[in-house]
């Protein structure tokens, strides 16, 4: 465990927990894409198939349980909670899961470390994580409005991506066997999509400030 990895895990954890706590507290999920949240729940469910078969560390197991629990809780809130689901921008959040899930599944069947169910699911989860933000990006472009909730969530996710790239570079030079193309390429694609997200975020933020300036 290096400092970049820990910082990446912590910002990733905070992004999910901040979102869950805010939805729970303010009973609103305005601006948040349910499609993206469902894709993340699917990402964790397919990546952590090893949770009960391969023990790595107490830290690893607890983190996996928290990610699974919190991501499915967010989906539950947005779909089932009577107040939260009223604030959901359903008409705007129209991205189809299918268009992301199917190509990722096909790619995982072709590009994997070993052709076993667990390995294919693991590769699938990495490809899907890379593009799972797209429905959120589309929703953001449509509503052209980012509140603090969405802003903090995206900022923390972006920090997680950046720290993980530093972690891979660090591990590449310190651990002789650490070569992992599937993780790196999908991680890089994901980070580039976040850079795009940040671009829209700062643009919207800038425009909002301009709008509020006195004439």
């Amino acid at each position: 465990m290096n400092i970049f990895r820990l910082a990446g895990d912590m910002t990733h954890l905070m992004s999910v927990l901040v979102l869950l706590l805010k939805i729970h507290t303010i009973k609103s999920c305005a601006g948040i894409s349910l499609k993206t949240q469902e894709l993340y729940a699917l990402v964790f469910a397919t990546r952590y198939l090893d949770i009960f078969t391969d023990f790595i560390s107490v830290y690893n197991t607890i983190m996996k349980l928290i990610f699974l629990g919190s991501s499915f809780s967010i989906v539950w809130y947005m779909r089932r909670h009577k107040l939260v689901r009223r604030s959901y921008d359903k008409e705007q959040d129209t991205f189809r899961h299918f268009f992301l899930v199917l190509p990722c599944l096909l790619l995982a069947l072709v590009m994997n470390e070993k052709f076993t169910f667990k390995e294919v699911m693991w590769a699938f989860s990495l490809y899907l994580e890379a593009v799972a933000i797209l429905p959120q990006l589309v929703l953001l472009q449509r509503t052209k409005n980012i509140d603090n909730l969405t802003g903090q969530y995206v900022f923390l996710l972006g920090a997680y991506r950046a720290f993980y790239i530093f972690n891979w570079i660090y591990r590449y030079f310190t651990e002789p066997h650490y070569v992992h193309w599937i993780t790196w390429i999908s991680g890089l694609v994901q980070t580039l999509l976040y850079a795009d997200f940040f671009y829209y975020y700062f643009n919207s933020w800038k425009n909002n400030v301009k709008l509020h300036l006195p004439a």
């Binding site: 990895r5 990733h12 983190m63 996996k64 990610f67 972690n167 591990r171 066997h177 992992h180 993780t183």
Partner: peptide, 10 residues
């Protein structure tokens, strides 16, 4: 680091 260390990431 062993080859197994790869999947210790979240």
């Amino acid at each position: 680091g062993s080859p197994d260390s790869v999947k210790d990431e979240l």
